[in-house]
Amino acid sequence: MKRFLLRRVLLAFLTLWLLTGVVFFASHALPGNVAQKVLGPFADPEGVKQLNHELGTDRPIPQQYVTWIAKTVRLDFGRSLNYDRPVTEKLRPALGYSARLALFAFVLVVPISIAGGIIAAMKRGRFLDRFITVAGLSAAVVPEFVWGVLLVLVFGVKLHWLPVPGLAPPGSSVFSQYKHLLMPALCLVFVLFGYIARITRAGVIEAIDADYTRTAALKGLTSGQVVVRHVLRNALVPTIAVVATQLGYLLGGLIAVEYLFNYPGLGQLLLNAVKKRDFPLLQAAVLVSGTVYVVATFAADLLYMVLNPRLRQGATS
């Protein structure tokens, strides 16, 4: 197990390192001139040269990478070109906003979708199962912003039940803050529900069909006891691991949702950085989202290992 853990940690770091490579080369090594991209095609050549010097983009690429990575590991992402402020200063509050939205969505979707998956598995082949599975997966392929438009139209404009902006005015109560967050969170919930429910359903069905479930039933346990003590115990182990990896997806979904609801999170920041070719900010935002993903999958693997005796203890017979 120690070996496995060590290998897993090393892999996580390797992934992060490769990620920095991808991010760096995407913003530096691709054809074109960084400063030119920033300043636009009609910029003064002297200005372009000047900016390239300031950014260090006139030096050889490997040298640039070393300088850049040395700063990055110290969490020094440089200055944002667009805001002319240190990147970290912009990043920190945005990260906080996004975390709140993402966690809210997560807290909503996990219990609902796991319950949906279990119900579908229990009613396998019946109408309710088909409904949950087909509707869930169909909902998952509709982009978040489309859900957003529909929600805003119905609950914001027609019914006036929910406020449209994602961010409550300063000084609002906690309740009001989450009321503002509800529609953005629901967009993410719709997209995530089908996926988690499907994984849960598959896990539960596999456990129901397993020989050990038959053993349990033939011991004389009630079906309730069989489900709780034997089926769910085995079915939810892989589910939990998969759910954790979905944290990574959320970051992608946040971009469109934050843009639609004008919510000042990491997604908006990243989008603005793309539009304004603000490379230092863009690199930082992408790296942060990648790190969150790597940490989330690592945590998922760890959880899976803790819950699965086969990995926790090697075969010793």
Binding site: L19, V22, G248, G252, G253, L270, V274, L282, S289, Y293
Partner: peptide, 12 residues
């Protein structure tokens, strides 16, 4: 490790 949209944005 990066969501599809993020990679696409980076490339764009």
């Amino acid at each position: 490790a990066m969501p599809v949209i993020v990679v696409a944005l980076l490339a764009i």
